[in-house]
């Protein structure tokens, strides 16, 4: 992963850009693609941060799974005793899950298949959808079934 600082051309605010390279950790890849030389021409400072292992596409998927499960476990351990849904959803690990974006939606839906839980806030935030009918509002088990079916209809879960 290459992290670089540059400036927005519209407002001149400093922004940080992250480039992820999969399959090889050699700096020469960046050089061959011209990214580091391009940034160097702009006079920005580039900081290199490489993973210690190779990252094939399979390993990227596994990495997302691992990250999700780690965050999930942390979230559940901190929130089982809570009743306020906002308090449950504002826990940092849950917010990080939301930050993982659409890639985690199938993982969340798999969780709902196994055990109804307060994943609805995350699902709605990521997908901008909510098919739960008013008649099922507050019914955690029914809401979970609705979302699981939504996932199957979208091809995100096996039917």
């Amino acid at each position: 992963m290459l992290v670089a600082s540059t400036l927005c051309h519209s407002c001149s605010s400093e922004i940080r850009v992250t480039y992820n390279f999969f399959g090889c950790k050699c700096p020469s890849l960046a050089l061959a693609n011209g990214i580091v030389p391009a940034l160097a021409r702009q006079g920005v400072e580039a900081k290199q941060s490489w993973r210690s292992d190779k990252m094939s596409s399979t390993q990227v998927v596994e990495s997302i799974h691992e990250r999700f499960h780690e965050l999930r476990d942390g979230w559940k351990s901190k929130t089982r005793h809570l009743s306020n849904t906002a308090q449950i959803s504002l826990v940092f690990s849950y917010q990080k899950i939301i930050g993982m974006g659409p890639a985690v939606v199938p993982l969340i839906l798999s969780e709902l298949e196994k055990e109804p839980d307060h994943w609805f806030w995350a699902l709605e935030a990521i997908t901008d959808e909510n098919s739960v009918a008013e008649s099922d509002a507050g019914d955690i088990e029914a809401s979970a079934r609705v979302w699981v079916q939504w996932g199957r209809d979208k091809g995100l879960l096996a039917k």
């Binding site: 009743s83 509002a137 507050g138 019914d139 955690i140 088990e141």
Partner: peptide
């Protein structure tokens, strides 16, 4: 997970009580 403390305080065991939802 069927009900929470707010529901239980109101003697309800069928829903998770949440503002704007139930």
């Amino acid at each position: 997970v069927r009900y929470n403390c707010i529901a239980w305080a109101a003697c309800n065991t069928e829903r998770w009580w949440q503002p704007g939802v139930f």
